[in-house]
Design a binder for these strands. Structure first.
Ligand code: MN
Ligand code: MN
Ligand code: ZN
Ligand code: ZN
Lengths: 141, 141
DNA sequence: ATATAACATTAGATATAGTCTAAATTACTT
DNA sequence: AAGTAATTTAGACTATATCTAATGTTATAT
């Protein structure tokens, strides 16, 4: 995706296209590795302009609030982030905590009775188990 | 559930039934409110014997490892815990972060191609939106 | 029963993740 | 160009969780 498209998507969400914010968004769009805030901070500071830690966190929060970025909470580890491109589910490794994309498919909604007075926004599936890297080690333990 | 049953389930997992560990397990079994570690710590210290903060965390970790307790990570908030009784899914409120149980139903597995070399242990669904308490406030905003 | 080893608890220090503050700067509007 | 609201920043601060190492407890072996 080109720079103009990123700029437009930021502005379409009412966010100014600052160099720091652009860098976060661009990094997430070219990396489907679900980096942590610390990793993103480090990555965007490899190149000018520099971005402070607070700004990295601020921008991640703004981007999540704007719906451009998704935050994935992982038990006992730092949150991870990805740009919301195509819809997809996530696989989280029991052992290393890595988050990986799984092709999207529709999830049957719960019976409306069990939702009660709640307002449902989305159903996401979290797959758990061992990632391709950890699966072999497990077998030989 | 009675005390003996808790004792047996702990010992069945190779864990000694200490007063502190028992207190954590018993509290989780009679509370389906998905408390945080801090809330559990406070609750088990309302009654003797007292349990330290480190012990509460240690025991929660042991119980999760033993498969008796589930840890639920919530974006931007402290982890929450529940005793693994009947299988169920979770609803997480966008606004207040509360975790609520949703009746279990089977989730279709992903195409085996998209799982690749991963070993799948479970598929859980996370429902998101507004809980019954937060839904009205949202409408009138 | 006693010794021994394994398991568990504890207070407090430490680590990690993330937020807040308030001053300076920047991006957009007119 | 000037005005203004959004953004950035360093570093202090908070929240959450883990670690350390000394002490206490329970289980097993003799
Ligand atoms: Mn993803
Ligand atoms: Mn639950
Ligand atoms: Zn892994
Ligand atoms: Zn709520």
């Amino acid at each position: 995706m080109d720079a103009e498209a990123i700029k437009r998507s930021l502005e379409g969400s009412g966010l100014r296209c600052t160099p720091q914010r652009y860098a976060v968004m661009a990094f997430l769009m070219e990396n489907n590795s679900h980096p942590t805030a610390a990793e993103i901070f480090e990555a965007v500071n490899q190149v000018d302009p520099r971005s402070s830690r607070a700004t990295t966190y601020n921008n991640l929060r703004d981007l999540v609030k704007a719906g451009l970025v998704r935050e994935v909470a992982v038990e006992g580890r730092a949150a991870r982030f990805d740009a919301k491109g195509m819809r997809h589910h996530h696989f989280i490794c029991d052992r290393c905590g890595n988050v990986e994309d799984i092709e999207w498919y529709d999830v049957p909604r719960p019976a409306s009775g069990s939702l009660d007075k709640r307002i449902l926004r989305e159903c996401e599936v979290i797959f758990r188990g061992l990632c391709a890297k950890c699966a072999p080690r497990h077998a030989s333990r």
